[in-house]
């Protein structure tokens, strides 16, 4: 009994920490897919790009991976702004964004992977940091710093973004832009500019998300594909565009996967997690925090 209680506690704690990581890699999708209706399936590839950015700074310069990723966010922001500009001119403005846009982002996914393979090779890469290794102990519960530091960094990033989106003029316009672009023009805001800023922000989060990923596990160029299903599932489950929903859904999915892995074996965890997603959406189609 005692043993299973500590197993349960540990499974819940690591599930929460895993959820913190999931939230970091999903928050970009919550912006691009949830708020802008842009199906950026290449997002996980940009996460991996973020991982390699952190890896490069860490292995060459010895900088902490998460600090390095923060320094790199302006570069990712500009990359995102550039991608949006191409997407907008080629697809969105012509009104055939849905299917062709999907193909465009598929292309970006492969291009990013191929570039990473050419530059860094196909081997798994990892980073060094003082918090990789040690753990905190609370009685029977073990909290690895390797998971705790990324989870805290993730929540800090999401909290900052939340404040920006709810308190600033640009942020409120971002929340409105998918609802009625014409009406946004009547607020003296250029919807294309607003969407460019929002999409660029979503890509900027991939820098930090990538660093968090490579702190948690070794990374190779095509690893992002494993996360495509999961990140979209979390964004939908949370309620599109809701940050609180994204965090809660990420935590719920993390805990479910962790519990399943602990008590039934890791191979069951995706099935249980996606089963839960389907059930939840059957009960509340707009997601947990959907408006």
């Amino acid at each position: 009994m005692d043993i299973s209680f500590s197993l349960l506690g540990n499974a819940i704690v690591s599930g929460l920490l895993l959820g913190g990581f999931y939230a970091a890699v999903t928050i970009g999708i919550s912006i691009s897919f949830g708020m802008l209706d842009i199906v950026n399936i290449a997002h996980p590839a940009f996460i991996i790009l973020g991982s390699y950015g952190a890896y490069f700074a860490n292995s060459q310069l010895g900088v902490d991976p998460i600090v390095a990723s923060l320094v790199l966010t302006p570069a990712f922001y500009l990359l995102g702004a550039g991608i949006y500009e191409v997407y907008h001119r080629s697809f969105e403005r012509r009104g055939d964004a849905s299917m062709r846009g999907l193909a465009f982002f598929f292309g970006l996914l492969f291009i990013t992977e191929v570039v990473l393979v050419l530059v860094f090779g196909v081997d798994y890469r990892l980073v060094r940091a003082i918090y990789i290794g040690p753990s905190l102990h609370f009685g029977e519960i073990e909290v690895p710093l390797r998971l705790l530091v990324p989870a805290v960094a993730s929540l800090a990033m999401i909290g900052g973004l939340y404040l920006f989106l709810s308190r600033s003029f640009i942020g409120r316009a971002i929340q409105a832009v998918a609802q009625d672009q014409g009406a946004l023009r009547l607020m003296a805001a250029d919807p294309v500019r607003i969407k460019r800023i929002a999409f660029a922000l979503s890509i900027a989060t991939a820098s930090v998300g990538g660093a968090i990923l490579i702190v948690i596990q070794p990374v190779e160029p095509s690893l992002g594909r494993e996360y495509i299903g999961r990140v979209f599932a979390i964004a939908v489950l949370g309620g599109l565009g809701s940050f609180a929903g994204t965090v809660v859904a990420a935590m719920v999915l993390g805990i479910m996967e962790s519990l399943t892995a602990t008590f039934y074996g890791p191979s069951w965890s995706p099935a249980v997690a996606f089963g839960f997603l389907l059930l939840a959406l059957a009960v509340k189609p707009s997601g947990m925090f959907g408006r």
Binding site: F169, R172, Q175, Q179, A183, A189
Partner: peptide, 26 residues
Amino acid sequence: IAFVPEGRRLFPRLTVTENLMLGAFR
């Protein structure tokens, strides 16, 4: 120059306050 269009064109999934604050974007 402000315009109240036909059909009002509010942002339906934003709150009253959020709609008003967007009005002050200028």
